[in-house]
């Protein structure tokens, strides 16, 4: 094994992506051989609804588990929410292969920087780094429609708050004040969160909102998977607070889904009749 040594003019600094480029291992070199369908487009696996919302101690990130290729379910247990490092997470929607690679590179990029420099990037620095990676994926979007849109969220150790960033395909980076949702079912999820979110939510209430948002997205969007009690596959939920990234265990998520389903059943399947405390809001009003 030879160690990668660079002359001072060619040094990649603390960036892992730049190091790969200098070492001739750049992942943006597109490998051919994917199957094209009759329209000439490559049919690739797609991943779907992801949400993130702020609560009193930090942020919640959640995502469904379904990946689709056209109208086929390609994967029922896909991971879409990942720890980016100890105090931040990244979730992905869009083309699954490209997105997974982006996450892997992003995680390495943060860890590599931290090790080389001896201290981690600021939360905003991390978001900007991800923005550059989304932007460098733009040729793939134009050539093959392989869109990747992540959500980045984390706990800002300097400001002591949870912060959420979302992105567009050109790498545009937008900080969201309270919540965001993305992917094919994102708009349905977003409506739920928008109606339920309020300042000062505790962890449990925030997770319940995320779960309800994913449930409603799955109810409306064919490419988003709902809770799968037969196989025991439930959406992923993670929280990031001052003690770092923590994924909620599947048992807790399953229980919260069961409660939500019970409440919906009691409300006759009308989500508008259920509030996040589980009390039925609509009251019988006697006709005058």
């Amino acid at each position: 094994m030879t160690l990668p040594i660079f002359s001072s003019g060619d040094d990649p600094g603390a960036s892992f992506q730049e190091l790969l480029r200098r070492s001739g291992l750049d992942s943006n070199a597109i490998s051919h051989g994917a199957n094209s369908n009759e329209r000439g487009l490559i049919e690739h696996v797609h991943a779907t609804t992801i949400v993130s919302l702020r609560y009193s101690d930090g942020v919640v990130m959640a995502g469904d588990r379904r990946a689709t290729a056209g109208v086929t379910i390609a994967n029922r247990a896909m991971q879409k929410v990942f720890p980016a490092d100890r105090y931040s997470g990244v979730s992905i929607s869009g083309s699954a292969g490209a997105a997974s690679e982006m996450v892997k590179l992003f995680q390495l990029e943060l860890e590599h920087y931290e090790k080389v420099e001896g201290s981690p990037l600021s939360l905003e620095g991390k978001a900007n780094r991800l923005s550059g990676m989304v932007r460098s994926n733009l040729p793939m979007v134009i050539q093959m429609g392989m869109v990747v849109i992540p959500i980045f969220a984390g706990y800002d150790l300097r400001r002591r708050v949870g912060r959420i960033f979302d992105f567009d395909i050109t790498g545009g980076r937008y900080e969201e004040k309270n919540h965001t949702a993305n992917g094919s079912g994102g708009r349905y999820a977003n409506s739920v969160i928008k109606l339920r979110w309020r300042e000062g939510l505790d962890r449990a209430a925030a997770i319940d909102i995320a779960i309800e948002a994913l449930f409603e997205a799955a109810d409306q969007d064919a490419a988003t998977g709902g809770p799968d009690s037969i196989r025991g596959i439930y959406p992923q939920v993670a929280t990031i607070a001052s003690d770092g990234y923590a994924e909620s265990d599947e048992h807790e998520v399953a229980q919260r889904f069961a409660l939500l389903v019970d409440r919906l059943r009691q409300a006759g399947g009308l989500p508008g009749a259920v509030n996040d405390g589980g009390r039925i809001l609509t009251q019988e009003v006697a006709p005058s």
Binding site: M1, T2, L3, P12, F16, L19, S23, L25, L108, H112
Partner: peptide, 28 residues
């Protein structure tokens, strides 16, 4: 760090070991 991160990225995290790194240092 560069050598280890490249190796872990190209293969797997399990494939990074101190022996090969030590050999790399020794060669250099």
């Amino acid at each position: 760090i560069r050598s280890a991160d490249i190796r872990g990225y190209s293969f797997s995290r399990e494939d990074v070991d101190a022996r090969s790194l030590a050999n790399g240092y020794a060669q250099m």
